[in-house]
Design a protein around this nucleic acid. Structure first.
Lengths: 186, 186
DNA sequence: ATGGTCATGTAAATAGTTACATGATTCG
DNA sequence: CGAATCATGTAACTATTTACATGACCAT
């Protein structure tokens, strides 16, 4: 039996999702993606964005208007079409895929027995520092978001993903502090 | 200025790391990887393993012995060489890369405003169920590990990565339960 | 002047997945 | 008798990154 497993191109749906909020250029897409889904997804690169926009346009899922403003770089502003919205909705109702985690620090800890525990300790300390910084950034973000969260549903959804980041980052900090103690007595 | 950023092939170091514990076949590698680093890294596929083993052998980082046992498939058992250990150690002392998270459920929640909140609720419920199952699996694993953890350093490192999984999974459950409440009042 | 931001894109390489191909043994 | 496990691997495709190429404006 041939079970044809169509691999879903997430970049495609991220672009469609972002365009479902507002029309954007390829350049905008990268920045908006970073700011909106950046805590739980890898950044989009131009090498992904521009080719994907072209195929999306070919399939009629997005449409393009070119803004020619002299003395300013030309902007190709993309909007989602009705077919695009339908494609997005078909994907949205499907069950979510498994989470993907790639923790280089755990790889290096797990295989670290051959290089001395001081290297592991240093990595965990850096990890703690990084997560503390992230938590501060989240707190500032949350503060500004709490004020406007009742203005739109989108803000509420954004807050949910921000809270995910906060829960995870706090858990990572707890783990890291516990791990430091363990490593120091090894 | 040309900043040559060499993209590190993690698969290579995972294989080297696993072989630094014991000699293994390509087939073994997939299973051992799944059991050992599977909670924080995506599984290795044969399409990655066999070609990587070949290039690793060509570079002299691993060596191969062929076990011909009649009435049994032939086994190519790979061992790490001294050069391989040095390559591994060079990588181990480098600072750890940023964590990579890909949360399809957050993508679908974030873009979910166009399909009705009941779809989001169902996804979060499934997420809770999945995480509860994972937590039970971790608990069973921990129990069996606590008994033997003093027998080897490797068990201690394994326990650290298992604990990471536990902290994260608990945090995800807390977030998901809070999120369910929020979604139900939307 | 230098670097940052805005804005487009392509080409080449690397990474990773999936399907296919083969075949014996073991377990229920 | 069929499914799972052991064991090898390749080919084709898809995904993603990185470097390169271009060029104007604006702030320091």
């Amino acid at each position: 039996m041939v079970t044809e497993l169509v691999r879903e191109n997430k970049t495609k749906f991220i672009i469609l999702g972002l365009l479902s909020h507002e029309p954007l250029t390829g350049y905008d897409l990268r920045q908006i993606a970073e700011r909106s889904i950046g805590n739980f997804w890898t950044d989009l690169s131009f090498g992904q964005i521009y080719p994907t926009l072209r195929t999306l346009e070919k399939k009629g899922l997005v449409s393009k208007t070119v803004e020619v403003d002299e003395a300013r770089p030309l902007r190709k502003v993309y909007s989602i079409t009705q077919e695009g919205r339908e494609e997005l909705q078909k994907w949205l109702v499907e069950p979510a895929d498994m989470e993907i985690f790639k923790l280089d620090i755990l790889l290096k800890l797990y295989f670290g027995s051959s290089v001395g525990v001081e290297h592991s300790i240093k990595k965990v300390e850096m990890f703690i520092h990084r997560n503390e910084t992230t938590l501060e950034r989240y707190a500032a973000f949350e503060k500004s978001l709490r004020g406007i969260v009742n203005q739109s549903k989108d803000h509420k959804f954004f807050l949910l993903t921000l809270e995910y980041g906060q829960y995870i980052t706090k858990a990572q900090l707890q783990w890291a502090k516990h791990t430091l103690e363990t490593l120091r007595t090894m």
